[in-house]
């Protein structure tokens, strides 16, 4: 069969794999909703969880789509569609594809025309991310059981332990926001853009809390994080024009 990065057969295989991934999500969703009803979680809470999760997802999902478009210049659409729908992240996939293309004497942005090159890139991208799929079934139960033990031995410490996990992650990302601020010394103010965006999102979040207290509009707090995310992203446009 003659090869092309956008050969219909590639789309058929990728669509079949993505259909199974979608089926897994639907299966777990149905199971969780059934169990939620059994233990008395209200319909209202479930509905709000679902709606807010969709709102929360739109902007990051569009960013992932931009990743598909970026990688499609070398790899066509099917492979980036698979890699970014299943496990992958743009930063990893770009490095994995770019490194392999360099080894093949090609560069990112140059369309692959040879089946062997394409298969080589697909292998490196696949083996790089496969570790999570091997280890999740093996280790999740053990790690989870450990967590539950901590919680059952000392309930208060169990809660603090959980909060510490979340704060540890959030603090790392807050640190990252400031990673380029020292560029200011060299007269480059672009490092302040993420800081301004983060502060904008934080202020919007605080305003949502305040508005909820004044107006008693519960929906504001329900959707406060997606609202602050979108406001932060929107303000990134003027901040970049100003500081970039």
């Amino acid at each position: 069969m003659e090869f092309s990065v956008n050969h219909p057969i590639l789309f058929i295989i990728v669509a079949a794999i993505i259909a199974v991934v979608l089926a897994q999500s639907i299966y777990f969703l149905v199971r969780a909703v059934r169990r939620a009803k059994e233990i008395g979680i209200s319909r209202e809470t479930l509905k709000k969880t679902a709606v807010a999760s969709v709102l929360f997802t739109i902007a990051p999902a569009v960013a992932i789509l931009i990743g598909v478009i970026t990688l499609s210049k070398s790899l066509g659409i099917a492979l980036p569609w698979l890699r970014l729908s299943v496990i992958g992240s743009l930063s990893y996939e770009t490095v994995a594809a770019g490194t392999t293309l360099t080894e093949l004497g090609k560069s990112m942005g140059e369309m692959i025309t040879d089946a062997s090159d394409y298969i080589t890139v697909a292998w490196v991208m696949t083996v790089g991310i496969i570790i999570g799929l091997i280890l999740t079934p093996l280790l999740t139960k053990k790690v989870q059981s450990g967590m539950l033990k901590i919680g059952s031995r000392d309930k208060k410490w169990g809660e603090i332990f959980n909060n510490a996990l979340f704060l540890g992650m959030i603090s790392a990302f807050l640190g990252y926001v400031f990673s380029d601020v020292l560029l200011v010394v060299k007269g480059d103010f672009s490092g302040l853009i993420p800081v301004c965006v983060m502060l904008t999102a934080a202020v919007v979040m605080l305003l949502c809390g305040l508005l909820n207290k004044i107006t008693r509009w519960r929906w504001i707090t329900d959707y406060a994080v997606p609202i602050s995310l979108l406001c932060g992203m929107a303000m990134a446009i003027p901040y970049t024009a100003w500081l970039g």
Partner: peptide, 15 residues
């Protein structure tokens, strides 16, 4: 610029 700054916008609110 909006899509370049998703992470700061996301973690600003969550923080």
């Amino acid at each position: 610029p909006a899509f370049d700054q998703i992470l700061p916008a996301l973690f600003g609110g969550l923080a």
